[in-house]
Computed example of a mutant assay.
Amino acid sequence: MTLATRFAPSPTGALHLGSLVAALGSYLIIKRAGGEWHVRIDDLDTPRCVPGAAESILRALEQIGLHWDGPVVYQSDRAAAYQAALATLEARGALYPCACTRKEVARAAQRSGGAGLIYPGTCRNGLPPGRQGRALRVSTVGSAITLNDGAAGRIECRLNEEIGDFIVRRSDGLFAYHLACVVDDAEAGFSHIIRGRDLLACTPPQIHLQRLLDLPQPRYHHLPLALNAAGKKLSKQTHAPPIDPQHPVPAMVQALQLLGLDPPVTLTRTATSAGLIAWGLQALADAPMLTLGNGPSEDRPQHAWEP
């Protein structure tokens, strides 16, 4: 298998420090290993997509010097592949319609897990009388996932108890993130998924889908997050300021530091973005947590899911 990974931003706004950490981290790790770095635009959630944001992100990456391999893939062009995956799940008895609204799930859920409220399986054995299916869920009964993340260590997850049956087609008809992500990653043949720590809880459901669809399981590495002064993840929702692609060095220095790489002051005073990328590639030789090895030892403590 070719070494390859991807940076997959959602076009809900401009490139900011949080997304730069994911872009730069994934780029440095895969390029240091001699692999390919691809870009995919995850634009399925059309109500949240901002016109022109995808083009803005791509321009910023180019100006910074993070050049991708191959064509940019847009999830909005991939509906046929997602529909085919749904048909396979249905044929294998893994899908069921769900009539529950968000409010109903919130009232019925007994607890929260790493991905939010845990769906109690209300519609798993049939729709309530007089109700129609709004969304499609995948059953997780009896599914246990174990993986060794490149940064978080050994992870064990009993899906039904810790995540619950999750949605693969939303009530508005849009395909859900887990399904689209798994289908696209497999078709592209990515050997590694290198992304932000906030997506760690997405990994067990996605591995569950890979197994149901007979798709290969890539290795995973979840990078540190950029946080604001309140300790919240930097994102469009928390009003993260956009990166200035004309003057990206300060943001790139911050991103490198968040990745555990600390460029010397003598470099940062005169550095260009290209110079920082070159320095980062060389510095990875001394950063074992940012390599494509087998990840931390299997005897590390089990990861605790966080709501």
Rank of each mutant, 00 (worst) to 15 (best):
P250M: 07
P51E: 11
L223Q: 12
V141G: 00
S235R: 01
C157V: 08
G35M: 08
G275A: 09
P307K: 14
A91N: 13
R6M: 05
D77A: 14
L58A: 01
D244H: 09
V21H: 10
Q237P: 01
G18A: 08
Y96D: 11
G295K: 07
S171L: 01
G260W: 05
L261G: 01
A226Q: 07
G130W: 09
A274C: 02
D165W: 05
S171M: 03
D286K: 11
I30S: 11
G150R: 15
T88P: 00
H192R: 06
R124P: 03
P51L: 05
I207R: 12
T140G: 03
A251G: 09
N294D: 15
K232N: 11
R137H: 06
H67W: 04
G52W: 09
V141E: 15
G295W: 08
P218L: 05
L223N: 10
P296L: 09
T146L: 12
T88F: 01
E156M: 02
E55P: 02
L61E: 02
P301F: 04
H38S: 13
L127E: 06
Y96C: 06
R170Y: 01
V253P: 05
W37N: 13
G130C: 12
T5G: 07
R107P: 00
G126T: 07
A60W: 04
G142E: 08
A94F: 00
A230M: 08
H178G: 06
N160E: 15
A4L: 12
L179R: 02
L127V: 06
C100H: 04
T2A: 14
D172E: 13
Q206Y: 11
L28H: 07
A151N: 13
P301I: 00
L147I: 00
A176E: 12
K236G: 11
F7D: 01
F7I: 02
A151L: 14
A144W: 01
A84E: 14
R92I: 02
R211S: 08
H38E: 14
A251L: 05
D184P: 07
G116S: 05
E36R: 15
S191I: 00
A188H: 11
G126A: 08
W37A: 12
Y119G: 06
G231I: 00
E187H: 09
C100M: 04
G35C: 13
G70D: 13
L117N: 05
G164R: 08
W279M: 02
Q83T: 10
A144S: 14
A4M: 13
H38L: 15
A91H: 06
S112N: 13
S273C: 04
D262Y: 15
L215H: 04
K103R: 15
L127A: 10
Y177G: 09
Q217H: 11
P128G: 07
Q302A: 14
A33K: 11
L95D: 07
Q246T: 14
L276C: 06
D286Q: 15
H303Q: 14
P264E: 10
P224F: 07
I243F: 01
R131S: 14
L212N: 06
S76H: 07
H222R: 06
P216S: 10
I57G: 03
D149L: 01
G153K: 08
Y96I: 05
Y119R: 03
